[in-house]
Design a protein around this nucleic acid. Structure first.
Ligand SMILES: NC(=O)c1ccc[n+]([C@@H]2O[C@H](COP(=O)([O-])OP(=O)(O)OC[C@H]3O[C@@H](n4cnc5c(N)ncnc54)[C@H](O)[C@@H]3O)[C@@H](O)[C@H]2O)c1
Ligand SMILES: NC(=O)c1ccc[n+]([C@@H]2O[C@H](COP(=O)([O-])OP(=O)(O)OC[C@H]3O[C@@H](n4cnc5c(N)ncnc54)[C@H](O)[C@@H]3O)[C@@H](O)[C@H]2O)c1
Lengths: 215, 215
DNA sequence: AATATATCGATATAAATATATCGATATATT
DNA sequence: AATATATCGATATATTTATATCGATATATT
């Protein structure tokens, strides 16, 4: 019974952060109202699609004018779970992991990376982006005590499953996975994969086809 | 007339790299044949979906057995444009850009980052991941002379459009954009965005909804 | 040799997503 | 004040994507 969560369209969830970014910028520029058409033009999307996406956050607009920016921002932030901020642990302080730790904008997305972990003792000697790095062995205890909901995986592909297992055991509910493998986790655990291969596949495949048709 | 390129499903293009990775691994392990069911199980997808995806690459299988791995790999690589390798320039040697430059696996995806560019002269003093870094002012001439098809954007959001303009002028055909903005480019230019906000939006939104239903 | 079974490939159906249409309404324009 | 217009919100349609069904076939099993 409880399983019947109203699930929202993933494409919608992926577009909303962009609308939010635009809305915030316009708000900073002093605007009080923004219309779906404005957003759609900038995103190069159909205004009807933007309106439907925004409708799913529950915010109500004004005919002929658009949406009050403050209400729109609030609704989208709440809908995305970006209000308040969620704690996260990052595991794998390598090239990519360090880049993420140094990225300051995640706070705008309600993500607080409060600690990082690595197996390499050298990495624990310094803070990165003002975030402390601990030995991976410390993760379970810390995660349980602090009830950290999100784990970020930036270790090598062949270690990623082990780290996922550790995270699940430690009570982490959602995993943001940058390693190029499909993690095996219990159904109740959310996994979102960032697959650069997938993205690159779209680009190069289309590039190839375009070239073929040119000649 | 020429515009009528048979376009393939983007979801399919995004899944194929994963199948390829699995196929390559199984080939290394000595296997000669692989079935859609095998791949589907590992990817946690419906075998029918995997079969349809693979069918779009044109490879033919054997009833009751599966696909010859070598033929499958060849077909997917060709389909994705990963055979031969495509040259790319990267602009913005900051935290993220440097991580990408140091990532060795892009060659497996047919991507050869042959040079990087930055506006900061300091960055040009050293190779990163064995890739030379030049001043951004050198890009147009080099790109034109070498006919580089792909540009990777890892500069700050507020500079990304300028860099895109420079790339388009320099004859680059496809842009892999890591900056969180929608680039304005001519229709003929391909753009693929890597949006961490989008990915994070899916994760946190679903996490929120799950939590709501728990209590 | 006969039978069972797993898989491909084609076709059909279902579900999800995107686009179109239309009335209502708030503002701007005449 | 009357009219035009841009936008919302709801509903309808079209398109895309995913899943199901079924016959053909190659191998394994009895
Ligand atoms: N660098 C990129 O641009 C890039 C791009 C796409 C995908 N990825 C993926 O991201 C992941 C990380 O890539 P990277 O380039 O940063 O690799 P990296 O080798 O630089 O970093 C991996 C880090 O993980 C740590 N680690 C290894 N095993 C561990 C364990 N058991 N517990 C804790 N820490 C452990 C290592 O010490 C290292 O610091 C890989 O899976 C890679 O495929 C990276
Ligand atoms: N670091 C991350 O984890 C991360 C995550 C998501 C998105 N991004 C996006 O990726 C981009 C880069 O992020 P970052 O953290 O690496 O930033 P960064 O500030 O570390 O790097 C930006 C680099 O671009 C260079 N640059 C600026 N203007 C330039 C110009 N006109 N020509 C050439 N080079 C120029 C800077 O000198 C710097 O080296 C940003 O758009 C950011 O939003 C980064």
């Amino acid at each position: 019974m409880l399983k019947k969560i109203k699930s929202f369209s993933v494409p919608t969830l992926r577009r909303l952060p962009l609308y939010l970014k635009i809305a915030r910028r316009e708000q900073s520029a002093g605007k009080l109202i923004i219309s779906c058409s404005d957003i759609a033009r900038e995103c190069r999307l159909d205004p009807i699609l933007v309106r439907k996406d925004i409708a799913s956050t529950g915010v109500v607009g004004q005919a002929r004018c658009g949406f009050p920016i403050d209400k729109l921002i609030e609704a989208v932030e709440i809908f995305l779970g970006w209000r308040g901020g969620k704690d996260a642990f990052l595991v794998g302080v390598g090239h990519l992991g360090a880049a993420l730790l140094k990225y300051e904008k995640f706070q705008e997305h309600g993500l607080m990376i409060i600690a990082a972990f690595d197996i390499d003792k050298q990495k624990t000697k310094q803070k990165i982006g003002n975030i402390p790095v601990f030995l991976i062995s410390k993760l379970p205890d810390l995660a349980k005590r602090m009830r950290v909901p999100i784990g970020i995986i930036t270790v090598n592909a062949d270690t990623a499953q082990d780290i996922a297992d550790i995270m699940v055991d430690a009570g982490i509910k959602a995993i943001w996975n940058f390693a190029p493998i499909v993690l095996k986790v219990p159904e109740s655990i959310l996994v979102e994969n960032v697959s650069l291969s997938a993205s690159l596949g779209v680009l190069t495949s289309q590039l190839n086809r375009q070239k073929d048709s040119d000649e």
